[in-house]
Design a protein around this nucleic acid. Sequence first.
DNA 1: AGAAACTACTTGACAATGCAAAGTAGCTGT
DNA 2: ACAGCTACTTTGCATTGTCAAGTAGTTTCT
Lengths: 106, 106
Amino acid sequence: MDDTQLLKGVLEGCVLSVISRGETYGYEILSVLMENGFDTLIEGTLYPVLTRLQKKGLIACRVGKSPLGPSRKYFSITPEGEAYLAAFTENYAKITQAARNILDNE
Amino acid sequence: MDDTQLLKGVLEGCVLSVISRGETYGYEILSVLMENGFDTLIEGTLYPVLTRLQKKGLIACRVGKSPLGPSRKYFSITPEGEAYLAAFTENYAKITQAARNILDNE
DNA sequence: AGAAACTACTTGACAATGCAAAGTAGCTGT
DNA sequence: ACAGCTACTTTGCATTGTCAAGTAGTTTCT
């Protein structure tokens, strides 16, 4: 089974949700998502998502030093991002409800 | 909000699930899905899904007359389709669990 | 009979997004 | 100096939903 398609769209909302908890950076977001069940997620997938979110103005970015390793890009959510996240969560609930209606009902 | 991306992959499994309940045809599948919450689904999206499922051998197809209107393509699920649906359902549960972990946890 | 409305399926161009695979580079410990 | 970890980037690719039409058979209303 290939779960690639199931991830579409969901990932963007989840990344935003992680950032909404407080300023963080790519590598940390990656580990949080992987620990929570997105275990096949790779950097080449995550970083473009961050770029997209930034372009849409949903997150803000600053470069800062790391206590260990190369410097990081720290992301935080914007008011637009909060609004988008709320809309996303609602929409996601609607779709999953519809899917459950169909899949559960034999 | 655009729910296009959220549909990806989910739709294929849902269509298969509807067909698994018994032989049916495109137009009917469309109305079942729309009644269950996929209210923006259109024909141009559904029919390509059916073609894909058929190409993968997950559903079988026969052409038959309709009691009203033009003739229909009747679809039924194959053993491969049943197996795929089971795998899909499991995988879907896993992804939605992961997403819930992330989205619910403030 | 003619027109409109409904049933039913088809097609081509398009955009969004995840993945694979590879690269660049800083830092730490041996 | 070398290995291993941290951290971000880039290019090319495949999949899939949508838009916007189009083709046709059947029924109903006038």
